[in-house]
Design a binder for these strands. Structure first.
Length: 416
RNA sequence: GUGGCCAUAGCUCAGUCGGUUAGAGCGCAUGGUUGUGGUCCAUGAGGUCGCGGGUUCGAAUCCCGCUGGCCACCCCA
């Protein structure tokens, strides 16, 4: 701990940033409710097994990218959640929610990943997350994507800034056949693969398709196509998803290199990307996880969901939302201080945002009213106070008028 | 985890070949105005030059280590 600074990869969220992030989260929550999704929450940490059993013991993710702490002599350990879905799935099982399907859930909160930080890639970050559990039909995938698109549009990200990339991973049978074909193909060129991709050959061969190495890309060009290994059911499913998107007028690009490495994923996977965030261009990502709940030890239940990084989206907002413009109550002299305090409280109880300057003369308090972007100032002077009225100064126009105190609320409500 | 670039006031930045009191703009404070904000004018506060070590008569400046940020890779559940 070298200095008084936040831990690497964490940061303070000051009010302006907080407003941006809240605009993102509030928009998502509002829309999710419109689609019939209900907010829930789970703890920020879980027994490590919750994540380990779904991700696999040896993956990079488990071995070096989670925050894991021992909690008992017997070897129990807990992990700060790296994403929301595993916790939601655990809660689904714990609470027996399979009795009440489908579950349509909205989620937001902080997540933790022990990765090297970059812009838009923090170690503590926030996500919004939507899950639809218990729907096996393609219409579920379509609704998910429609909600995602609607949400991104709602916060000002239109088609010219955002691309929907979509792919299918097929069902388990199709995917395993394809994976084997890929391994067979790349195996014969193993000596020509990059070091990274040679390591991926057994750990996660699908990832080779997305390699940035030029040599790898030449080999990828002639690699087996997923399309040739998809069985009829998988093709039908994907076609129905795409048909649904066309029905809704949602444009997309099929990206055959868009993959997920873990076995519980199936069928649809998709990402919304932007070219405005460098290499961290994925702004929202999701897919179908029909095998997850079963793999975790629950009843076989299909699911689909997506998550989006709040910080990344907040960075893309063209401007920070402004806080509401307050009314400033300004006593002209010491004799009016108590009256000002009382009036301030009355106006607040009527629903107005009100700033009461704490110190200083009239000039200083008006200066402060200006700095907080007040819409108007209510000036309580000796003369007016004696008559039960106040001077109302419109801080945009500079115009002033005398208003009786009991008419003040009605008059303020007329201001724009 | 690997490689590269960077770190000077609250913010954005300048600082020559290593040279003695480290600057600007914005912001902030006070006054011009004891009952009137924004504009303007004046004055002022604010710096371990990221931290630690080294070279040197002398280091913000050169060298090494560390911390942090950014960029790319790995990874992206």
């Amino acid at each position: 701990m070298a200095k008084l600074q936040p831990v690497r990869g964490t940061r303070d969220i000051l009010p302006e940033d907080m407003r941006r992030q809240r605009a993102v989260v509030d928009a998502c929550r509002r829309l999710a409710e419109r689609y019939g999704y209900h907010e829930m929450a789970t703890p920020v940490f879980e027994f490590t097994d919750v994540f380990r059993r779904t991700l696999g013991e040896t993956s990079d993710i488990v071995t070096k990218e989670m925050y894991t702490f021992p909690v008992s002599e017997e070897g129990d350990s807990v992990t700060l959640r790296p994403e929301a879905t595993a916790g939601v799935a655990r809660a689904f099982i714990t609470n027996g929610l399979q009795q009440d399907l489908p579950q349509k859930l909205f989620y937001t909160g902080p997540m933790f990943r022990h990765e090297r930080p970059q812009k838009g890639r923090l170690r503590q970050f926030h996500q919004v997350d939507v899950e639809l559990i218990g729907v096996a039909q393609p219409v579920g995938d379509v609704e998910m994507i429609a909600l995602a698109r609607h949400f991104l549009r709602e916060i000002g990200l239109d088609s010219d800034r955002i691309t929907l990339e979509i792919n299918t991973l097929g069902d388990l049978e199709s995917r395993q056949a394809y994976r084997q074909a890929l391994v067979d193909y790349f195996q014969q060129y193993a000596d020509r693969l990059s070091d990274d991709s040679r390591a991926r050959l057994h750990r996660n061969p699908l990832r080779i398709l997305d390699s940035k190495d030029p040599g790898d890309r030449r080999l990828v060009a002639d690699a087996p196509q997923f399309d040739d290994y998809l069985n009829r059911e998988s093709k039908d499913f994907f076609r129905q998803v795409l048909d649904g998107l066309r029905t809704l007028g949602i444009s997309y690009e099929i990206n055959p290199r868009l993959v997920r490495g873990l076995d519980y994923y199936s069928h649809t996977c998709f990402e919304f990307t932007t070219d405005q965030l460098g290499a961290q261009g994925t702004v929202l990502a999701g897919g179908r996880y029909d095998g997850l709940i079963e793999q975790m030890g629950g009843p076989s239940t299909p699911g689909i969901g997506w998550a989006a990084g709040v910080e990344r989206l907040a960075m893309l907002l063209s401007q920070a939302p402004q806080p509401p413009r307050p009314i400033a109550v300004v006593p002209a002299g010491e004799g009016q201080e108590a009256m000002a305090l009382d009036l301030t409280q009355k106006l607040r109880q009527q629903g107005f945002p009100v700033e009461l300057g704490y110190t200083g003369n009239l000039r200083k308090r008006l200066k402060r009213a200006d700095r907080v972007n007040a819409r108007a100032a209510v000036i309580l002077g000796e003369d007016e106070a004696a008559k039960g009225s106040a001077t109302l100064r419109d801080l945009d126009s500079g115009e002033q008028e005398t208003v009786a105190l009991d008419a003040l609320g009605a008059r303020l409500a007329q201001l724009g």
